[in-house]
């Protein structure tokens, strides 16, 4: 358990959080390497299906991150993402998936420092939870 290195799948929007991650990199900020970034044009395109798939494939955590309310490049994609997050948390919560494993955050393009801090915090929380057991199951 001490050596447990979680895998976190992060769906990040092109305009805000991906740019923030880029900024964190160019600013030479250090954050854990456990996160796998998937750049999407908008958090509003993250179908709940993607999140379910990540968990069933054994991801230990999933992060969806985009622009702050009012800042969406497509006006309201992040509001849709928030409703879907409410929905999917309701479903996965009934199946015993801990709340900390699924996160939605708003990280703006200039928030490189906040991006690095968020990843650090999520990784430490998920390390405390332990691995997602589905990765060892044969039927999903």
């Amino acid at each position: 358990m001490e050596n447990f290195e979680p895998t976190i799948i992060a769906f990040v929007c092109n305009w805000c959080t991906y740019t923030a991650a880029d900024l964190a990199g160019t600013s030479r900020l250090i954050y854990p390497k456990n996160v796998r970034l998937i750049r999407v044009m908008c958090t509003g395109m993250v179908d709940p299906q993607y999140i379910i798939k990540a968990f069933l494939e054994g991801a230990d955590g999933v992060l969806v991150s985009g622009c702050h309310p009012g800042d969406c490049h497509y006006i309201n994609g992040n509001y849709k993402a928030r409703r879907r997050m409410k929905l999917i948390k309701e479903i996965l919560g009934q199946l015993g998936i801990e709340e900390q494993r699924l996160r939605l955050t708003w990280i703006g393009a200039s928030d490189g420092i906040q991006f690095a801090e968020t990843i650090r915090e999520i990784v430490s929380q998920i390390k405390a939870l332990g691995p997602n057991q589905t990765q060892f199951k044969m039927a999903m």
Binding site: Y79, K80, R82, R83, L87, L104, T105, T118, E121
Partner: peptide, 17 residues
């Protein structure tokens, strides 16, 4: 339908870490 309606300020509890 819940997924075709949304507002600027709502469901704050699902945001953040």
């Amino acid at each position: 339908p819940p997924l075709s309606d949304f507002r600027e300020a709502e469901f704050e509890e699902v945001v953040g870490i």
